[in-house]
Amino acid sequence: MQTIDMATTDLRSLNAMLQGQPQDTNETAWEVLNPRGAHALAVGLDAPIAVTVRGSTGYYCAGMNKQASVTVTGSAGPGVAENMMSGTVVIDGDASQYAGATGHGGLLVVKGNASSRCGISMKGIDIVVHGNVGHMSAFMAQKGNLVVLGDAGDALGDSLYEARLFVRGSVKSLGADCVEKEMRPEHLTLLAELLDRAGADARPEEFRRYGSARQLYHFKVDNASAY
C-alpha cells in the first residue's frame, strides 16, 4: 500500500504519480490522506489500481476515470467521476451536484445521497445511489442506468434519451418526456446485477422504472413548450 499525504504532497505530484502507473504496475493499492476538500483529486487515471481517499473531496474527484477503482471515505464535491470511461468510483458519504455527469462507462456508487443533476448527460455509465437524488437528475441522460434506492427530486429524467432510471422511493416530479415504464424481466435481471455490484441491500421488485416517452425525438408543434 502506497500512502500519499496531501498535507505534504501537492496535487500535481499526486496526480502525476497515479497517472504514471503502467498497466502491469505492482503498486495496485494507494491511499490518499488529508484531502480536505481539494479539487481534481485522482483525475485522469488509466490503470487497474485501487485508490482510497480518506476524507472528503472537492470538485471533479476521479474525473475521466479509466480502469481504476477510487473510493472516497467521506463526501464528494461537485462533478465526482465526471465523464468516467470505466472502472469504479465509490463514495461512502454524500455526493454534490453533477455526480457522474456525462459518464461514458464504469460504475459510480454513492452510499449517501446525491445532490441535483446526478447523472446529467450520462452516456453509458451506471450510477447507483443508496440514498436520494436531487432535482434535474438524469437531465438529457443518453445511455446507461441510474438506480436510486431512496427518493428522486423534481424533474427526474427531463429531456431523457435512452438511459434507464430505476427508483425505489418516491419521485417528486418527472421532467419533460420522462414516463414510468413497465418493469420487464430483463430489467429485473439488470437491476439485480447492478444492486449486487453496488453492494446495495434492496430487491429489484421494489423499484419502478422510468424512461423516455420519445415524444421529443422528432419535433412536433404540440410539444413545442417542452423543448
Binding site: L11, R12, N15, A16, Q19, H39, A40, V43, G44, G58, Y59, Y60, G63, M64, P78, G79
Partner: peptide, 14 residues
C-alpha cells in the same frame, strides 16, 4: 467554477 474545471483539465493532461 470554470477555474476549477480548467484545473481539472490541466491535471488530466499534465
Amino acid at each position: 467554477d470554470l477555474e476549477i474545471k480548467i484545473l481539472e483539465l490541466r491535471e488530466i493532461t499534465g
